[in-house]
Every structure is written in structure tokens, then in C-alpha cells.
Design a protein around this nucleic acid. Structure first.
Lengths: 196, 196
DNA sequence: GTCTATATTCCGATAGAC
DNA sequence: GTCTATCGGAATATAGAC
């Protein structure tokens, strides 16, 4: 749906392209870039491996198209503006609900791929720097804004790792709302405390 | 050195076994379990791939032998006992110096392998639960001790990911001592604050 | 203790027929 | 839009000679 805004030519009628994308999202999220083969995507999507190359050109292109990365700038703006004394809670809520829940497959894909694949790591690094840091810079005073944003992002990535990949209990089984309550004060500290 | 306490038989004189282990540590740390081949280890160690199998039986056994996992219980005890008002700083110091610095290869290996390999994930899960949680249970009052330890461990894994794998700047280039100063208050909060 | 040889399986990508 | 066929390579693991 994200990439269907083609200019003139109408897409093929079979739905194979969408089936490939849907399958790629599942496999990249489950086994990462290196652990997912084009042939496996093709087999599970019920198409020929050559067809995947025909549509996307390369495995790297398929991966890039499989991610649902951009977030609504207006939604981010709403999270970051407003009462600074409750910013930690709003950011925790955004991470837990909008990122880790709604975009779970994209986060899993990026994280599972980034630890062994330099290009995926660059994508995730850019995503963290662009969304969190650049925006925080506009809403937080002082020159430590980037560092504050990175400490928040680091913590949240660790929580995602523990809950969704390592499945460390009891943390992994807590409700999202409970996790938000738990981490909000720590995020609030990073966002507004004087950094020593 | 960790696994050289054999009972009677003296090891072979060539040093091939140690060369294989040293090379395996480097490659597993750099590319994870799935990204490291037995053949690549053998080639870089200057031995035949069959010899690796001869010594370790399988790739999984080689991986397990390549890790330097156990920490000195006395050292852990020293970190955890003592003034509870500075526990956050002592634990931050232990993570940054003793784990992320001294055992960087082991942490890299486990993290790079855990995101795509279920058995490696189980090893890391057990390591977190055993070292951090079980010990914290003995030193922290209340029934939330395990959760407190996991929130601390999650945060620290996220910091390691950001600094050593994603290399997010400026966080990645900070001195260890500066990172300790930055995260100690957050850890202290998780260890001693009333959890909502 | 060290090696050769091999069985078996899988990979990404390309060329081109239909 | 979809497929067959194939190139060129790499993987784990085993069997067994020396």
C-alpha cells in the first residue's frame, strides 16, 4: 500500500507483487536479512524466484521495500510538543504503541538484520538519528538534545530486544501499559534532568 | 584459558586448537553464529576444516567453547553488596568495564547470534537471568527484584547495541566513565524506586 | 593430529523462452 | 507477468587415508 502510487501504468492483476512483499515482511522480521533467502520468499509466496528479481531487482531492494519506515510527522510533532513534564510518558507510549506494536515487523526486520548486516545497521542508525534526535533537537533546550534522545532510544531498543527477541520473563509478558508506566520516569530523567 | 583445565592428558603440541578458538572468537564476535562458517574459521586459523570438527564435534560446540561467560561470583557479590544508595553506579561500572569492555567479544558474539539464532538467544536469556536477576533477588527487598534487574539489563543491552553495533553518535564515542555517569541515575531509579 | 575427498544442500543472480 | 535452466559459489558434516 505504501508503494502503490505508480504514475500511469496500472499494476498487474495477479497480486503476486503484494504476496511477495507480505511474505518478505514476515520472513525478514523472523530471520533477518542474512537468514532470509529470495528463494524462501518466493516459495512461501507461491511464485517463482525469478519473479522476485523481476519485480525488485535484488534482495537488498526487496528488503528496503518491505520496511514500513516513515512515521507521520504530525503525530511525532504532537508527541514532542506539549507539557515537558510529561514528555517521558508520551515518548514511552509512542515507542510501545506506535513503533513496537504497530510496526513490530519493521522493527524486528531492522534489528535482526542490523546486528550482522552493515547496510541494515546504517538504515536503523539513520532512522534513530532522524526521527528521535533531529526532532528532539527542536523541542529540547541545550546542546545535549541528541544525546538525550539517544539514551532514550538505546533504552527502548533494549526493552524491545528483551521483550520481543530474547523474551526475558517477567518483562516480556507485561502489558504495554505497565511497561510504559515503568520506563516513563527513566525517560523523563534523560529528557529533562541536568546531565552530569 | 577458561577451558584448559583438562584432567590428565596433555594437549597436542601444535597450538592448532587454541588458534581455532582464538579465530572463532573473532569471527563469531564480528559476524554472529549464522554468519560465521566453520570453513572460514579453519581458513583464518590456518588449519583444515575437518580439524575443527575433530576438536569440537560441531559448529554449535565450537561456539559454546568460544564464549567466556562465567563471571567471578566474588566480584559480583562485591558489586551487589554495600551501600544501596550507590548501587546504580556500581552496576553501571560493572556493565561498562567488566562486561562490555573486558568481555566485548563474548557480548558481541551472543548479541549478534541471539537475534537470529534461538539457541544463542536462550544462552543470553539464561545469562541475564542467572547473573543479574538471581543475584539481585538476594540483595534487593520485595518481589520486584527480577523485574528491576531486567529493566537494568535491558537498558544496558540497548546501550551496548547503540554504542558497539549501530555506532550511534555521539553516544558511541563517549568515554566509558561518562556513560557510567549518565546511566547511573536511571539504574539507581530502577533498583530502588517504588515501581508504579 | 592432520588432511583429502565427497555427499548433500542451498544460495543470489542472470538469460531468455513463452 | 511468469517460468525453466543454469552459472558460480559456499555451506555443514562425514568417511577415511596417512
Amino acid at each position: 500500500m505504501l508503494n502503490s502510487a505508480r504514475t500511469g501504468r496500472r499494476p498487474g492483476e495477479s497480486g503476486s507483487r503484494e504476496a511477495i512483499l507480505r511474505t518478505a515482511r514476515t520472513l525478514f522480521a523472523g530471520k533477518g536479512y542474512d537468514g532470509t533467502s529470495v528463494r524462501a520468499v518466493a516459495a512461501r509466496a507461491g511464485v517463482d524466484p525469478g519473479l522476485v528479481m523481476h519485480f525488485f531487482g535484488s534482495k537488498a531492494e526487496l528488503f528496503a521495500h518491505s520496511l514500513e519506515l516513515p512515521f507521520d510527522p504530525a503525530e511525532l510533532e504532537e508527541v514532542l510538543s506539549g507539557d515537558r513534564s510529561t514528555l517521558g510518558r508520551r515518548i514511552a507510549t509512542f515507542y510501545l504503541k506506535r513503533v513496537f506494536h504497530d510496526r513490530a515487523q519493521t522493527v524486528l526486520s531492522l534489528l535482526r538484520s542490523s546486528v550482522t548486516n552493515a547496510e541494515a545497521a546504517a538504515m536503523l542508525r539513520r532512522a534513530v538519528e532522524a526521527s528521535a534526535i533531529a526532532l528532539l533537537r527542536r523541542h529540547l533546550p541545550g546542546r545535549d538534545a541528541a544525546l538525550r534522545g539517544e539514551l532514550v532510544a538505546s533504552h527502548m531498543m533494549g526493552v524491545f530486544l528483551a521483550r520481543h527477541i530474547l523474551r526475558i520473563e517477567p518483562l516480556a509478558s507485561l502489558d504495554e501499559d505497565r511497561v510504559i508506566e515503568l520506563v516513563a520516569p527513566a525517560l523523563q530523567h534523560y529528557l529533562t534532568a541536568r546531565l552530569r
